[in-house]
């Protein structure tokens, strides 16, 4: 864990993102999809929606931290709801 100053929380964070990417790749290979147009009026694929979810979640967490401070469990719940909404409607 000394290499690159790793700690478990950051390692888990990257493992989750890595796992998400691998899962999306497998899903894309098994069930190919066509892009769709959602409420943002732009064509999105599953990968695009994952990107929008992750980027938006980062900003939700930062906003939570700025307004209420840690812990971020509330922000995590908000991020999950946001991600679900992105995958459903965007």
């Amino acid at each position: 864990m000394d290499w690159m100053a790793w700690t478990w929380p950051t390692a888990i964070f990257f493992m989750v993102i890595g796992a998400l990417l691998v899962t999306m790749t497998i899903i894309a290979a098994l069930r190919p999809e066509t892009p769709r147009v959602g409420i943002l009026r732009i064509e999105t694929t599953r990968g695009d929606r994952l990107f929008i979810s992750l980027l938006g979640s980062a900003f939700i967490s930062l906003a939570w931290l700025g307004m209420f401070g840690p812990p971020l469990w509330g922000a995590l719940i908000a991020c999950l709801i946001y991600a679900a909404a992105v995958f459903r409607f965007v």
Binding site: M4, A5, W6, T7, P9, T10, F13, F14
Partner: peptide, 10 residues
């Protein structure tokens, strides 16, 4: 970038 993330929490 990963290193930067690591530093940002320490």
């Amino acid at each position: 970038l990963m290193t930067v993330v690591n530093y940002s929490f320490q």
